[in-house]
Every structure is written in structure tokens, then in C-alpha cells.
């Protein structure tokens, strides 16, 4: 370990200056401040603004147990071999009962603990469904400001419709593993539609060829995503990782969006999240005769919930 903290601290430097210098303790603190949207966050966000838009954001999502963390571990290794620095945000679920969380993703990323070019932060989902939290989006900027070439987002184990990562990551990798469902599962809408790259991990297990051909045929039948590449990996052995890196690069080269556009998209996603939370709370709890009238309309069949919601949105 080299620049872990006090030894690299230069007296009088601001937090953002220390982040820019690559000091690990400063990066850790910036991540926390942005995660919690602390009182200092607005000032820090303004200070890092000039340095943003460089990092490539790669999202890994898929069902629990497909091997997301292990594949991320292998992918980090390939990025490091190519000389790229990496920040990882690994999201695990919070308990809906206690609010507590056991954050264990990084246990599988242990190859990189002593590497100053890799910074891993675990994040609890804190009640957000969809595999990510708004905090994760802000934390991307902290890693971007720290000069990380690639920011990896690992979502909570996601099912069929948790597609937050689609609106946040630049490149979306969706994992599957053998034995998780039949060919009709693979054809269901949702998570397949958002994949830039599909991966069948644990490809050395029985049934992997079947899972692969089911996914490939579901992709071939899709009118929106017929060209999505499908790869096989064995993350524990590093097999298929070079091919994954090549596909990510190919997808990235095919993109024409500027960094600014991607950041604006993420900001819009944050706004949508916040607006949805706000509207939900207001509609549920506010005492308002207009809302009561719309509820009456739904109850007696005069309007559908969608029509009532539209009327409410247009009235405000």
C-alpha cells in the first residue's frame, strides 16, 4: 500500500484537491458525503463538476447467484492488465424489516484489495427496488472526479424488470447462469431488453450450452435487440473475460453520445426517482378533496387509475 491516508495528506489542501491527487482516504470521504447528500455535498459537487465526464460506466446486473461479483473481479483484472484504473460500487440489499444489510460482494473481489488502482465501495440499497439507489448515481461522479478510467456498478441481484441500471450505466452487461429458467423465461420482456451484452456465466456447469442457446434464440427473435452479443464466461477461471472486454470496447466505439449527454441522462434519472418518491408520498398521505374525487372516479369505474393519475399530474 502506498497512498492510504495520512502519509499522502498534504496540509491545507481541500478534499477535492486530495481526491484529484488520488488519496484513498479523501476518495472514501467524498464517496460518503455524496452518498449521504451531506450538508457539504452541494459545495463538493460544484467543486468536482469541472472534472467529470471522463469515466466509462459499466453496469453488471442479473439474478442472485449468477456470479456478478466474481465476474466483476475477473473483469477488474483485465482492466488493470490494460493499465486502466477502476472504481467499483457494489450494491447489496437492505432488509425491509430492520434496515440492516450484510454487504458481501467485495469478498469475491479480493484479488484487488492491495491494488491502489482499484477502489471498491459497498452500498446498501436502503429500500430502493430496481437494483440501484440514487446514491449510487452520485457516487459515480466521485470516482469520475478521482480520475478512475472505468466505474463498475454491480446491482442487487435483479429479476425480470429491475432495469435502473439501464438508465445509469453507459454499457450494460446482463448475466445469466445455467439452471435458472427455461426458454420461455428467456423470452420474457424486461432485463434482456436492456442488455448491451448478455453473458452466460458458470459456462462450465451442466446445462450451460442449453442456457446459451435459449438466450441466443430469444435474442434472435427480438425485434428490438436482435444484435445483442451473447458470451460464455467462467469467471472463477478467467475464461471468456478477454472476449467480454473486446465486446465492451466494441459497444463503446459504436456509441456517439457525449459524456455531457450521458451525465444529463443520469441527472434526469435522479429527478425521475425523486419526483416519483415525492408524488407517491403526496398522493398517499395528503388530505386533498381533488385526490379524493379522483379516488371516487377509480372506485366507481368512471376512470382508470392511469387516467386519474394523468388528470392529477396535469392539474398540478
Amino acid at each position: 500500500m502506498t497512498a492510504t491516508g495520512a502519509e499522502a495528506a498534504s496540509a491545507g489542501s481541500s478534499l477535492v484537491e486530495r481526491v484529484r491527487a488520488g488519496e484513498l482516504a479523501a476518495i472514501a470521504r467524498l464517496l460518503t458525503e455524496l452518498e449521504r447528500l451531506s450538508p457539504a455535498a452541494p459545495k463538493l459537487i460544484a467543486e468536482i463538476a469541472p472534472f467529470l465526464g471522463r469515466a466509462q460506466v459499466v453496469g453488471f446486473t442479473g439474478p442472485p447467484g449468477a456470479g456478478k461479483s466474481t465476474l466483476v473481479n475477473a473483469y477488474i483484472g483485465a482492466l488493470r492488465a490494460a493499465g486502466k484504473t477502476v472504481g467499483v460500487i457494489a450494491v447489496d440489499p437492505s432488509s425491509p424489516i430492520s434496515g440492516g444489510a450484510l454487504l458481501g460482494d467485495r469478498v469475491r473481489m479480493n484479488d484487488h484489495t492491495d491494488d491502489d488502482g482499484v477502489f471498491i465501495r459497498s452500498l446498501a440499497s436502503r429500500g430502493h427496488v430496481g437494483g440501484l439507489t440514487p446514491a449510487a448515481v452520485r457516487m459515480i461522479d466521485a470516482f469520475d472526479a478521482a480520475g478512475k478510467d472505468v466505474v463498475i456498478l454491480e446491482t442487487v441481484g435483479a429479476g425480470q424488470s429491475e432495469i435502473d441500471v439501464a438508465q445509469v450505466a453507459d454499457i450494460r452487461i446482463v448475466l445469466n447462469a445455467p439452471g435458472l429458467g427455461d426458454d420461455i423465461q428467456a423470452m420474457k420482456s424486461g432485463i434482456l431488453d436492456i442488455a448491451d451484452i448478455l453473458v452466460v456465466n458458470k459456462a462450465d456447469l451442466a446445462g450451460a450450452d442449453k442456457t446459451f442457446s435459449q438466450l441466443a434464440s430469444a435474442v434472435a427473435l427480438s425485434s428490438v435487440k436482435a444484435n445483442t452479443p451473447v458470451l460464455k464466461t467462467v469467471a472463477t477461471k478467467g475464461e471468456g473475460i478477454a472476449e467480454l472486454v473486446a465486446e465492451v470496447n466494441a459497444v463503446a466505439e459504436g456509441r456517439s453520445e457525449t459524456a455531457e449527454t450521458r451525465r444529463r441522462k443520469r441527472a434526469r434519472r435522479l429527478l425521475a426517482w425523486a419526483a416519483a418518491d415525492l408524488i407517491e408520498a403526496q398522493v398517499r398521505d395528503r388530505s386533498d378533496p381533488r385526490i379524493d374525487a379522483l379516488c371516487d372516479n377509480i372506485l366507481n369505474g368512471r376512470s382508470s387509475p392511469e387516467e386519474a393519475a394523468k388528470a392529477l399530474f396535469e392539474a398540478t
Binding site: G5, G100, A101, V107, T113, D114, R121, S122
Partner: peptide
């Protein structure tokens, strides 16, 4: 965890430098 805390859990056999690094990054 059940008391509502966020717990970063590691397997045994961590080196001291690894524990420091985890405490720092997390």
C-alpha cells in the same frame, strides 16, 4: 445486520493491510 446496521463481512485469514484497506474504502 438485524439491528439495522450495514455490515461489511469478510471471511477469516485477512491480513492487517487488507483490514486497513477495507476500513478505509468502506
Amino acid at each position: 445486520r438485524d439491528a439495522g446496521m450495514e455490515v461489511i463481512y469478510t471471511p477469516p485469514w485477512q491480513e492487517i493491510s487488507q483490514v486497513v484497506r477495507l476500513a478505509l474504502e468502506e
